[in-house]
Structures are given as C-alpha cells and as structure tokens.
Design a protein around this nucleic acid. Sequence first.
DNA 1: GGAATCATCCGAAACGTTTCGGATAGGAGG
DNA 2: CCTCCTATCCGAAACGTTTCGGATGATTCC
Lengths: 343, 343
Amino acid sequence: MAATIKDVARLSGFSVTTVSRALNGHSDVSEETRKKIMEAAQALNYVPNRVAQQLVTKRANAIGLYSLDRETFQNQFITLMIAGMMDEVTIHDFNLLLFATQRLQTAEEMIMQCRQRGIGGAIISGVRLDEAWLGDLPKVDFPLVVVDVPVQGPRATYVSVDNVLGAQKAIDHLVSLGHRQIGMINGHSGAWVSHQRLAGYQQAVRAHGLPWKESYVFEGDFSKESGRKGAEHLLKVNPELTALFVASDLMAVGALEQLQAMGYAVPEQISVVGFDDQDFAIHVSPPLTTIRQEMYTFGRLAARELIQMIGDPSYIPQHVDLPCTLVPRGSTGPVGRTRGCSS
Amino acid sequence: MAATIKDVARLSGFSVTTVSRALNGHSDVSEETRKKIMEAAQALNYVPNRVAQQLVTKRANAIGLYSLDRETFQNQFITLMIAGMMDEVTIHDFNLLLFATQRLQTAEEMIMQCRQRGIGGAIISGVRLDEAWLGDLPKVDFPLVVVDVPVQGPRATYVSVDNVLGAQKAIDHLVSLGHRQIGMINGHSGAWVSHQRLAGYQQAVRAHGLPWKESYVFEGDFSKESGRKGAEHLLKVNPELTALFVASDLMAVGALEQLQAMGYAVPEQISVVGFDDQDFAIHVSPPLTTIRQEMYTFGRLAARELIQMIGDPSYIPQHVDLPCTLVPRGSTGPVGRTRGCSS
DNA sequence: GGAATCATCCGAAACGTTTCGGATAGGAGG
DNA sequence: CCTCCTATCCGAAACGTTTCGGATGATTCC
C-alpha cells in the first residue's frame, strides 16, 4: 500500500542503508545523493513506518496518561491539562496515549502495559494517598510524573501547584478585607492537596494571629453536597465566622447555596473563597473568588519534564511547583457590613 | 530486558511457532503443551511486544481522536466523550491516541499520520462546515467517525444527537407551559448542529401554530457574550417574547445574566431553555432547564462503531443518532405570572 | 498393508526499519 | 609505487512477532 524504504531505494538507485542514513541526516552521504533520495521519497509520498522504527530503535515516542479517578476525569481540571500535554507532546513529535480509569494492582503492571506498547513514560493523575503501590513508584526504573502527590526518585517526580501558598493567598485576601474568624471546608484526606491546603490555612491563621479552634475546619470530600454540609455545620457550631475558605470550587458552590438558603447574604455577611477556578466559578452568583491553578501550563510542564527524562536517562527529574493566583470576584467582600436586603 | 517469545520457547522446550500458536489460542496445539507453555510464559512474566505484533499483522489496535477545535476541547463536552471512548476502547483492548488541536491541510495528511503509527481509524471532532477537505472524508479508504457533522461513505460515518428532536422537545416544553412567543439564540453557522437546532425550532413553531417573525432568531457564536447580546437584542426588538430557546448552555447563562440585569425575573417573566447540560447548568441561578446530550454514551458508541469498521472491512458503518432528553429545572416556568419580588 | 487422514509440531520467511562492520575508490603522503 | 586516509556507499543482521508450508508419527479406512 504505502511506499516503503525499499521503494525509495529502488527509485533513487541507492541502497536501503543509504536511504535510511540520508533521511535521518547522517553525515556519510554526499549532498548530491541526499538530494536525489529526498526527491524520490517526495515522489513516492514516503513516510517512515513508525512501528518498524520503534521495533528496532526501541525509542519510544509516546507517553501515556493514566487518569485513575473517574471523578477527577469528569471535571475541567483534567481537560485543560490534557490540552497542555497535547501541545507539548506535539512539539517533540511524541504521541499521547490515554488509559482508562482503572484499578491498577501494582506499579509493575502499569509499566508492563507501557513497555509493551512502546510508551516511554507516563503521567499519573488521580492517585490517592492510601494507594498500596504508591510507595513503589519512586523505585521503579521507568520515567514517571505524578500529579499532585509527592513522589521523587531517580526516574520519577511530581508536579503540583503550590497548594500551601494558594491557601495562604486565600487567607491573606480575607484578612485584608478585615476577616478574622475564618473557617475551612477541606477535601477528603485521601488527597495530598487536602493536607497541603490545610497546612497553608493553618500557617496563615497563625501568621496573622487569628483566633482559631479545631471546629473551624470541616472535612468534606470535594463533592458539592459536602460543601453544603460543611457550611451548615461550621456556621451552626461557630456563628462568629465571617468567611470560609473552601478547598474546591465545587464544594464552594455547595457552600454558597447552603449559606444563601440559610439566609446569609454573600458576601455581605459571609465571604467565600474557592480553589481551582473551574469554569462554572464565574457563572454562579455571586461569582466565586477563587485560587486559580493554571492547568494548561501544568499539563505542558508535566509533559516536558517527562519527555526530558525519556530522552536523557541521566537527567535528574525536577519537581515542578506551579504558582497559583488569587482571582478576586464577587463572593468575597469587606467584613462587618450590615445585613443586605435579602428576602 | 523483558522476556521475549524466544525465552518462552527455550524454557518450555517448544518452538517459537508453537509458543505463538499456543498463546494465541490456535487449534493445532495439544492441551498438554499449551499448559506447559502457559506456565513458562507465566514464570517469565512474558507479555507479547505489541510493536512487533503490529509490524507483522498490520492489525491496528488503536484509534485516534482528532479534536480540531480548541474551544470544543475546553468544555466538558469532549471530556465525557473521551471517558466514553476510553471505556469502549478498553473493552476491545484497543488504545486511544490523542491528536492536538491543529489545522489539517488535507484528509490524506491525517490518514498518513495515522497509518504511519498503526492507527486503524479515527474519530474527528470539531469540524466546521466550511472546512475545505470535508468533502473528501467520505471518499477516503480509512475508517472514520465524525462528530456532529453529517459524513457518510463506505468507510465513514458520523454520530450526533438528534438535534432537531432536541430543539422540538425544548419548544414543546415551553408550549406546554403556555408560551407562544418564543425566540431563539443560535450558534454560529459554521457548526452543523446550529442548522439542525434551528430546523427543529422552526418545525416545532410551525407545528404548534405559534406566531413567528424572522427577528425571533439571533445568530450568536456559542460564547457567553453572544448569549448576552442575543437576549438584549431579542427583547429590545420583540418585547412580546416570553421564552428563549438557546442553542448552548454557555450562551444560555449569558442570556440569563443579561435578562436579570435588564430587570426581568427568570422564570417568572421570561423562561430560558439551554442545550447540552454542561455541569455548570445546575450551579447557576435559577438552575438551567436544558436539553441533555449523553456525551459519555456518545463517545462509547462512536468508538464502538469505529472499532467495528476496523475489524470488519465489509461492515457498512451506521449513522448513530442519539436521543436527547429535556431536563426541566428552574429557568422555565408557566407563562403569565406577575412580576416577582426582585430588587 | 498401503494410503489417507489427523493431530501436533516446527523452520524459515516476512513485516519495515536501523546499524554494524566492512567495501570501494580516489587522493594525499612518503 | 605503496600505504594510509577519507568520503561514500552497501550487505546483512537484528528487533519480536505471525504465518505459510510443510514434516512427523500415529491412527483410521478400505
């Protein structure tokens, strides 16, 4: 069907070897013959068969993306990340393979699956801290980039936004608006980011010398419903709160709805800060103040780091810590205003 | 590094041929030797090298997804579709390759890219009607499934929801609530779905004998901003309108905001129906009544059809027309109520 | 008892590349 | 003139599979 290197050899009058070397830019072929070979290849519309190439060179020009958590996959988080990965991967002439939501039994299993297909490295997203094989990841001799879980080894690293800093920015913002009693709705403890965001919150609370009780923190599970519950619980137990820092936009929207249902005006009586800046954050009312993660950049850098590792076995992978930014919108305001004209 | 078929042959004491046939379940190998070979393979942790397999059998166990429109890629639409594709693909032991947002010059170019990599077929999403190579797609000898653009040939088909029916359901719903003056905000004409949704709207208007003027339809471009503009324009020109059918949720949210800014109460004075059922539809206020597309199923069926085509060259691909459903929520209500207590 | 059938097995070619280890010839150096 | 480079080219092996076309014995059939 398609032209092979033999056809090019035949048409140009040179050997298969020379054609290969000419096409791959090796030095021991004269300019004249290179030109002839190029022409022949052009005429036959020849493109090298990557499968054959891969078989002999073992060079893997593809990376895999494992998205292990179905829910992670359904939000916008991963979409932008994929877009970033795609763009980066394209630059390096790599391919991007997707692997379905699935329970991996062991790290080896995944690596087998990859090697078998000529995949040189993988990005893993949605790993929970209680995953049994998590500890094996750093030891493995296969380029790996993990998303939002700290993993580091000679061939493995991780990317994450600076969640501690993000939480601090949220609290700083609230403090600058005069808030002093600030509650937090956190995600579940299976996610590394939950611990980081909590740490950031606590550091900021301490740094600003804010009053604090253990009951100021509610552990949710990233669902909208848990945001709702968190808001209800926190304000029932601690009526003095004037602001909530919520560890995801989805939970923040739940909190928002619950607060409004309880008769609180946002932001006049209670301010709310989310995390992520998902697209719906600007569509709710009031629009959500949140901490934005640059997921597109995130994906690009993850892919870049991985491709770097694949290309150079001696490269020591670097942890990528992305900054995140506060996006002030309508759900936060100065403390202490009187009650608004809600119905 | 990894064990090859030769290692299995050596360990089990049989020839490479026999090992291959045993592992692939051919008939001319006795149960006894099959068992021995299986054991040897197990012991060596052998998995066949797919790259080598592919080189010889030309069977392509992978499909590609071309997402040609960056914006399409950024909404949830594609995410769920990918999830569906992944699940279907996994069942058939296929792989899913992603191709970056890009301008394709010709259909051949894409096919080359695929063949070169051992990809047996592709799903193409985000094609605009004015794409020059669109007409070539049906003629091409390469399994193709196009999303939301009618393409049909011996090796090509398309999947779409029944947009005409969806629009009709929206109008039926509004009519059942007593509405008779119904405007529409459409997407841009580069999208096939825009034409379909308009057709459904017009058919329903005619079927119900509703009053209609050309000025009842506003052509937007799927952006939130255009939804805003559309609402403003439609109600300025046609103050008698009591309902809007909007061809995407994003535009509908824009319309919602604009209507509220103009002092209209939704749904008391104006009802709004969106299209898509993106995740933010339930977070806006009032929650958006919309036409839901089952994107997950969409992706699954697209992948299934494609894999079917790849496996059986004589299979005549079927057009898949998914039903869509009305999801009634807070943005629609009976016509003719008096103005609510908005501030 | 010979031919035909059957159940098992295997050698070698093929898939389309890259690359190792030369081969050839012309020119430079002595 | 002989040797040694250098520049350019090529044959053949290798990558890890599948599969075509037998080969081998044992069994069945007439």
